[in-house]
Computed example of a mutant assay.
Amino acid sequence: MKKQGEILVVGLGSGSEDSLTQEARQAIEESDVIIGYKTYTALIANLTAGKKVISSGMRKEVDRCHQALDLAEAGCKVALVSSGDPGIYGMAGIMLEVAQKRNRHIPIRVVPGVTAASIAAAVLGAPLMHDFAVISLSDLLTPWEKIRLRLELCAQADLIICLYNPRSHGRTQQLTKAWQILSKYKKPETPVGIVKNAGRSDQKADLTDLGSMLSVDTDMSSVIIIGNESTYIAHGKMITPRGYVL
């Protein structure tokens, strides 16, 4: 009888040993094949010795899902790895869509990971203690007009706003546009925390405010957390009160 294949969509957190959950580690160890973006497969090289590893570059996400599905149909247990949490801007949705599009019924299990917002928040202190929104500034797959509307409404609602993908070599103006929108509704002294390479060995964190936010160097690996009207900075920590009487 042919062996039943399976796909495990695995979240790697930041990619460091410390942020890899036990469930994610076990999923990688029990898989026959590891598929992922080359940077992410390199981060877990110590866990993939003796396994088949298939790596590819940026914008090959759909191809990786097709490869995973083909290998699982051949009887392999495949770990499709994703940074952070695979269900938050990760590979889980793409994998499920590809399987549905091809009308395949291979078992697919999503293994959660620690998303960048959680890691960055922990580095900064406790900025996400109240209602917040996570918004990616990448307009590669989402029209800027829709991103703009989300920024407008979240800022008007005084949500804490966590920005992913703020800037890249090819996208230099989106963060400035976002800042202009947020500045209409949030005060210049609103605390802002910026964490670059959150959870990795070259992690860098900055505490600033909305008025000075654009002066801090950011790139695709940066997470920006903009507080609400109650957020403050004390003793080097960014804190959003939950509302308890102390």
Rank of each mutant, 00 (worst) to 15 (best):
A117M: 14
L80I: 05
T231P: 00
K2F: 06
S168F: 06
I225H: 06
L149Q: 15
E73H: 05
G11W: 06
G75A: 04
A116T: 01
K184F: 00
I226L: 07
Q156K: 15
L214A: 05
A155Q: 09
A99N: 07
T231L: 01
R242A: 10
G170E: 13
D206I: 05
G87C: 07
A27F: 06
A92V: 10
G36F: 05
G15V: 07
P143A: 11
E189H: 13
G193A: 04
T39E: 07
M91A: 10
M238H: 10
T48C: 13
G11I: 08
Y89V: 02
N103H: 14
E61G: 02
M91S: 09
E17R: 14
V81R: 11
L20H: 03
A121V: 01
N228Q: 06
T39G: 00
T21D: 10
P86A: 06
I28F: 03
L246E: 12
A42H: 14
I119T: 13
C65Q: 09
I35R: 06
L47G: 06
G90K: 08
L214Q: 13
P86Y: 09
T172K: 15
Q180W: 00
R64G: 00
N228K: 04
T176F: 08
G50W: 04
S212C: 05
V223F: 03
D219G: 07
V62P: 01
S183R: 14
D131L: 01
A120K: 01
I226F: 00
S16L: 04
G199H: 02
Y185R: 05
V114D: 07
I226P: 04
A234K: 15
W179F: 10
L182Q: 08
E189S: 14
I35L: 12
T115V: 13
G113C: 04
V223R: 02
P112S: 11
S118D: 05
V216A: 02
A99K: 08
S118P: 00
N103K: 15
V123E: 12
L69F: 06
P107R: 12
A121H: 03
V81C: 07
V123R: 15
E17T: 13
T21I: 08
C65E: 11
R200T: 02
V98R: 07
P191I: 03
L8N: 12
G199E: 03
A117K: 00
L210Q: 11
A205V: 02
I226E: 03
